[in-house]
């Protein structure tokens, strides 16, 4: 038997790692992976609360988060490919103009 707070702490730790990676990493693909890590941390909270309150809708929300993450990954990676094609770099310090 595991207390709910343990799951919440793990979820918060994953989210914090995602935030830290988003802030300190310089590679645009790694920054994007940090966002996925944050989404995974939130998903763990959803499932833990769903189990705690015996409410299945928490699991359904996890599906919607996954769908949005998949759509976001497809569009984001297409943007990364487009940025790389015009700038020849993946370093975010050198990508400081929104214009393509």
């Amino acid at each position: 038997m595991v207390p709910l707070s343990y799951y919440l702490l793990l979820s918060g730790f994953l989210f914090a790692c995602g935030v830290a990676g988003f802030l300190i990493k310089r590679n645009i693909i790694t920054i994007f992976m940090s966002i996925e890590l944050m989404l995974n941390g939130v998903n763990l909270s959803f499932v833990a609360f769903a189990a705690h309150w015996h409410a299945l809708s928490g699991q359904v929300f996890v599906f919607f988060v996954m769908v949005v993450a998949a759509a976001e990954a497809a569009v984001g990676l297409a943007i990364i490919i487009s940025v790389y094609r015009t700038r020849e770099t993946l370093n975010v310090d050198q990508v400081n103009l929104l214009k393509l």
């Binding site: 207390p3 709910l4 189990a51």
Partner: peptide
């Protein structure tokens, strides 16, 4: 989190998933 969230355990397979 440790103080305010429920200390009761989450049972394995508790959810009718």
């Amino acid at each position: 989190v440790l103080r305010h969230s429920g200390t009761e355990a989450v049972a394995i397979g508790a959810l009718p998933g």
